[in-house]
Amino acid sequence: MKGWDKFFALASGLCVLIIFAFLFWIIFIIARNGAGTISWEFFTAAPVEGMTEGGIFPAIYGTVFLVLVMTVFLMPFGVMAGIYLAEYAPQNSRLTQAIRLAVNNLAGVPSIVFGLFGVGFFIQYAGRGLDRTLGLETVFSQPCLLWAAATLAILNLPVVIKTSEEAIKAVPLEHREAAFALGATKLKMIVRVVLPQAFSGILTGAILSVSRGAGEVAPILFTGAAYYLPYIPKLPTDQFMELGYHIFVLSTQSPDVDKTQPLLYGTILVLLLLTLALNTFAIGLRVRMRRKYGR
């Protein structure tokens, strides 16, 4: 049996090694091919000559704009839902369990389904309704940044709800009791004792969903992302370019594959670094929170 033991230890270790090898191989290829493209111009210029030259500024700008608007949609709803589940919902009741199940299932829905839902619900239903009510020609009833951000927000809701709920539940009962014993109402207890302690946890959820939102293409494909735009979007009702979609476009729609390739690798590198930086930031926050509150 000792031989089997050794074999198993070796095999499991090897699996880890293979996974890491793949990861480093990907990063290595991208870094080697993309590093040469990174320049000041690459960050600040727009694509030119049928996207075979120039930079990716509109895509970076669009990604940041998109993610910001998404956060505005996402955080109030997500955090409030987390507060409800942790503080107000009757624990262990059928309804609460059903809500939790629904949140989990929402997390399992393929992102392309969210994209199509966004078209159907936001653009054709909400957008058209808005246009009709406000007496506008096609403003809201077309793909635009607003609806792309809303679709991404729904996609990311489960992450924020769960991290918020967990962060809120992690606040010790003693602190709640102390607040109540001093004459705090439930609302004051939540605002002054629970939320400050849960803040880093909630922020971690926000950053994780931002980093995920920056990389998702399927939900924005039909809801607002543009293949190419000759201008920088100013309003949430404009279409926009986005890094992930830009990568897709560069790799499949280019008129000159060889000329586009360095740009493609450069763009991938930028997106990778962006999400990597966001994730590292989130992990750092969580570590800091654990240290501060001893958990």
């Binding site: 102390a178 001093l182 002054r192």
Partner: peptide, 24 residues
């Protein structure tokens, strides 16, 4: 008022802990 079995100050400054009941 109440004092609990285990000391349970809020993770805030000493001043903020004492002032809590007044501030709320």
């Amino acid at each position: 008022g109440m004092v609990f079995q285990k000391p349970n100050p809020f993770p805030m400054s000493i001043y903020e802990n004492v002032a809590f009941g007044l501030k709320i």
